[in-house]
Nucleic acid binder design. Structure first.
Length: 224
DNA sequence: AAAACGGGGGC
DNA sequence: GCCCCAGTTTT
């Protein structure tokens, strides 16, 4: 177990160096993070960004998004996948947030514990554990690890975890990694970037990876 | 645990 | 044209 922790530190150093040290501050604006992450599911970063920019350009305020016909919101976020469902979810989320304190802001999450924040956010339709984790870590510096498919896959290939489900992968990583927001932020971002750019789901670019000698997947597939 | 949801862009 | 993608919800 202790050697796994050491390996995690090695992976952290190598991948943060490779993909650039990320600053946890200045933190992202919470509403931007929440809505853009809701848009991001099952689509690409470029489409998420276009949908978000188009949404903000179309409606002057979040209140205007709530007031608009759901079809108009769906049209604005069209580049994102599942636009009709996401439009409905975003309007409902904004209405819930407005009801919380009478203004469109989730800054009140700063005063809540990590667990309370997770519970509150995941009550929103269209917000699951990944989205909630990202908002709490990126915007409120809560020590929490978002385990998306990239973090899971890269951790798995490097032998850091051997888990059937994302939930199990999260439990193992949480036991192993430091519970420090900046460390977790860098780990998440570094493994995400690695998964997107080098450790691809299919045909990973192992010739660009500094960790092949520590990689179980590479050891099993190097003959191919 | 597995399927449904469902669309733009890269190859 | 085929297949993938910062996931969530429902069966």
């Amino acid at each position: 177990m202790q050697d796994l922790r050491a390996k995690a530190e090695l992976v952290y150093r190598e991948l943060v160096a490779l993909h650039g040290f990320q600053q946890l501050v200045p933190r992202r604006e919470p509403m931007h993070e929440l809505i853009s992450t809701m848009l991001s599911h099952q689509t690409t970063e470029a489409n998420e960004e276009r949908g978000y920019q188009n949404l903000r350009a179309t409606f002057p305020t979040w209140e205007a998004v709530i007031a608009a016909p759901v079809e108009a919101v769906a049209e604005a976020i069209k580049p994102a996948n599942y636009a009709p469902a996401k439009a409905k979810n975003i309007q409902a989320a904004l209405a819930t947030i407005l009801a919380e304190r009478g203004e469109i802001s989730i800054d009140f999450l700063a005063e809540r514990s990590t667990e309370e924040g997770m519970a509150w956010l995941t009550l929103l339709r269209g917000v699951g554990p990944k989205t909630a984790s990202l908002v709490l870590l990126f915007c409120f510096s809560k020590p929490i690890l978002p385990v998306d498919t990239h973090v899971h896959r890269v951790s798995q290939r490097l032998g850091l975890v051997n888990a059937k489900t994302p939930t199990e992968a999260h439990e193992i990583l949480w036991e192993m990694l430091p519970h420090d927001a900046e460390w977790l932020f860098n780990y998440h971002v570094a493994l995400l970037r690695h998964g997107q750019r080098i450790c691809l789901f299919k045909n990973p670019r192992c010739n660009q990876c500094p960790l092949t000698e520590h990689c179980l997947w590479y050891a099993a597939h190097r003959a191919e």
